[in-house]
Design a protein around this nucleic acid. Structure first.
Ligand code: SF4
Ligand code: SF4
Lengths: 134, 134
DNA sequence: CATAAATACGACTCTAATGGTCTTATATCG
DNA sequence: CGATATAAGACCATTAGAGTCGTATTTATG
């Protein structure tokens, strides 16, 4: 399957929401979860990851929440996936976890050729940003 | 995860193997499985799917096997994925299984924008063929 | 005709990843 | 203090992926 995970989708939805509103505005996880009917706890964890990496800032306590601090044009899909999934989107397992991750690595005849696909994917996901999905 | 499944990888490996050899040559599943150290039964099922859709022809019985009948340039990654996985590579679940497949379909703000990604993906997977991975 | 070699096909198991939930801790405003 | 919010990690259920097995069918060949 070549599909985005729910976590990534929820992250994109949240980031887009922040991007289309006034900069500096604060949104709570609960609020976002309600608007988009997304599981609160799951969204919260995604937002926490985004906060840890400096994509959004988090304000704890009463009247707290999250605030977008990066420019939408700097937030590529690629980057968001890497933050949320922990790794860049890769077409083949061995590209992520190295030679030992695939039992047929040594006999694989498509690894090199797939590099071309990977490079195109990189371009695609790198140049598509939150800016462009508002 | 944006990864090809093992079945697709095995299919690509097999098709590429046929493509780089003389046209009309017959290969058995066992033979291919041995060369690339791929699980025989799994590869066999993939080859059967490819045979059912007229991508390769199958010859039963002793001295049987599979033979490539389509031109490598006609075999796009997109097409091969569709044959083996049963559906085209789609970036979002709802694109495959419709509105009811996603609980937040009605509130989803990224579905439309993701269409752009999907179109780029289509182009990428459509124009990359077995021809280009020899 | 008997046998061996090969595809055809479906049932089955095992494992890991995903999606989702729950609990507890911590921070902060009023 | 108490309400509200993030932080973090454990936990669980479901599913999809990878792989295996068993059996039927086809067919070349001695
Ligand atoms: S070695 Fe080949 S089969 Fe294994 S993961 Fe890499 S590309 Fe896929
Ligand atoms: S509706 Fe939105 S969240 Fe649901 S699958 Fe489609 S794109 Fe993803």
């Amino acid at each position: 399957m070549i599909q985005l995970s729910k976590k990534v989708e929820y992250g994109l939805i949240a980031l887009r929401h922040m991007a289309i509103h006034q900069q500096g505005q604060i949104f709570t996880a609960k609020e976002l979860a309600n608007i988009y009917d997304v599981p609160y706890e799951l969204l919260a964890k995604v937002l926490q990851k985004l906060a840890r990496t400096g994509t959004i800032s988090s304000i704890q306590g009463v009247r707290g929440g999250y605030m977008l601090i990066k420019k939408p044009s700097e937030l590529s899909i690629s980057r968001i996936i890497r933050i949320i999934e922990g790794e860049k989107p890769m077409i083949a397992e061995c590209y992520v976890d190295g030679p030992d991750s695939c039992s047929i690595f040594d006999n694989c005849s498509i690894r090199r050729p797939l590099g071309k696909v990977q490079r195109n994917l990189n371009v695609l996901f790198d140049k598509m940003t939150i800016q462009e999905i508002v």
